[in-house]
Design a protein around this nucleic acid. Structure first.
Lengths: 336, 336
DNA sequence: ACGCCGTTTGACAGCGCTGTCAAACGGCGT
DNA sequence: ACGCCGTTTGACAGCGCTGTCAAACGGCGT
């Protein structure tokens, strides 16, 4: 990068002081329209770009937002990250992904060091929204933060969330309307966010017709969990006509396993997932799933971070989930 | 963030000048061991973190590296990005993802604006390594760049690459050794990088036994491409015993399709992919594929960027590919 | 004991912006 | 014509570092 046009160059060309140019660049009030226009002309003529480093040093803002998660390589997280990048760019901010692999003292210390170094203007929490030690640390450091999909302590901070249980309810109603009555439900230990079983019950299913398989996230890949689910399914009699997988990866693995054992999807078995991950569109059949509006959620989160809260209670923005009906769900086989 | 410890605080505590602290922080030479140690003690005691903005302003380096690609949401790109983040963090740099969706004048102008704003110290190109207009612009802006997997013009810049044809050769040999002789090959129009067919021929296959299906990336999802490949396969007689999919997504879609049509994988049909994407481990069966060492490649790329070239010819680092043999490949059925 | 020269250290300015505060402007009422 | 007061503008310092350059140091040979 050779040519460096500075504020001062613009000011000279426009015949005003650097401070005035700064005002125009930052869209501050108290600039006469004529002045503003003259500055803008000069900016365009010189093709001026403000120096981010100088800006953040002078304003003691970093123009940086951090996105905190437990597993950077989770599909879920990556999708959020790239949605967030777009949301930030639209507001002149940058987004930094930060990994907190576990809630231990050393891991927290590392996070603290990193935060103090980067001096993020705000943080967006995902997967960590319910970790009190993390929240406590952020409050101590006085970093503003927004939680995504918090499960507990709703009034503790600004948050972006869905209507509690909306996603699972959409799935439950879909299955009910298709005519399914016996369902296998996959759930994850320690993750209380999605109570599929409750949603099914609320939609009319009888407890006796629901089988819930709780699996543990740690130490098992989605592929393994899907396979185990498939094995369980094959031993059951009468066999459920539908499976609610905890997420799309598990659904995909289950579908492969089912094919491999002679079950045809969706003719013999309906499988639904959650997240609308890429894999749900790659599989045959494509997977019926619940779509989270990541772009919208991240955009709202950035908004909350950059808009000071004028009231004194934390704000909550609710983003609607949508059901993506694809070919992995159909009415149950004739006389199951 | 309240507490702000500055260089000066450290200097005062250590009893030296700020400049000396700066030298220690940056690992410069010409500091007496005793002094260095005293400074380090002070740094630890105050838990000092340098202010990135001040640093880049003063040094006129941004401590930022850009990763340029055409599709931020491609699996390939995301994997590279997160490998790159780690490689950069290890060197005190940050990585910024930048999207260049198409090679048009307006898209290039936007990129140029963004680059001049962020003032990246260097760029890593992926998917764009062979786009002369992009390279020309970067050279005009004098931004150092490293190309990943360049296909053309190898001497134009530093590059990180594989041995030409290594990946497809690994796959070809694997199939040959398993005993396959008739193979269906999926290739992508306009993407000359992987000549699977040539590799198969070089490994002993006869041209007459190879069928190549060229598909077009634009307008088709991997799922559709895989499905079309599957349809093609079912019409063939004699049927190939193995399919080389262009990538793992296509392989996954093909596998689902094959199951849906009564083919058992790998008993009836071997399917291999490319990239070692997550999906290759989620599917049943897991997909035999070629693994790109993204962590290593990004680490080398960052290295090239941050290590000045002492010679006068561009450098090339070659990273070895490895074959991941999984359950989607097996010997062909008995008398196919 | 002295001078020489490589090594170590520090003084100072400046990177390009923004915050603060005061000065200049300008429209209004009288 | 004058004073008042809200609006617009600019002077100046400073954000926290690093680059430059010169001064201080210190070990060596004589």
């Amino acid at each position: 990068m050779k040519t460096t046009v500075t504020l001062e160059d613009v000011a000279r060309l426009a015949g005003v002081s650097p401070k005035t140019v700064s005002r125009v660049i930052n869209g501050e009030a108290h600039v006469r329209p004529a002045t503003r226009e003259a500055v803008n002309r000069a900016v365009n003529e010189l093709d001026y770009r403000p120096n981010l480093a100088a800006r953040s040093l002078a304003a003691s803002r970093s123009l940086l937002i951090g996105l905190l998660g437990m597993r950077l390589d989770a599909n879920f997280f990556r999708a959020m990250y790239f949605s967030g990048v777009r949301a930030c760019r639209a507001r002149g901010y940058h987004l930094m992904a930060e990994e907190v692999p576990e809630i231990t003292a050393s891991s927290l210390a590392e996070l603290e060091a990193s935060l103090r170094q980067a001096r993020c203007d705000g943080l967006i929490l995902t997967q960590l929204s319910d970790q009190a030690p993390v929240l406590g640390m952020l409050e101590r450091l006085q970093v503003p933060y927004v939680r995504l999909l918090p499960g507990t302590d709703p009034g503790r901070s600004d948050a972006v969330t869905n209507i509690q249980g909306e996603g699972v309810q959409l799935l439950a109603e879909h299955l009910w309307q298709l005519g399914h009555r016996r369902v296998l439900v996959s759930s994850l230990l320690g993750s209380g966010q999605r109570d599929m079983r409750a949603a099914l019950l609320a939609s009319g299913f009888r407890a006796a017709d629901l089988t819930e398989v709780k699996q543990d996230w740690r130490g098992q890949t989605p592929a393994e969990m899907g396979r185990l689910l498939g094995e369980q399914l094959l031993t059951m009699n009468p066999r459920p006509t539908a499976v609610c997988a905890y997420n799309d990866e598990i659904a995909a693995a289950l579908i492969s396993h089912a094919w491999a054992h002679g079950l045809s999807i969706p003719a013999d078995l309906t499988v639904v997932g959650y997240d609308d991950a890429e894999i749900s569109r790659v599989m045959w059949p494509p997977i019926t799933t619940v779509h989270q509006p990541f772009d919208q959620m991240m955009s709202e989160a950035v908004n909350l971070l950059l808009t000071p809260n004028s009231g004194d209670t934390p704000r909550t923005v609710i983003c609607p989930l949508t059901l993506k009906v694809r070919e992995s769900s159909a009415p149950p086989p004739a006389e199951a």
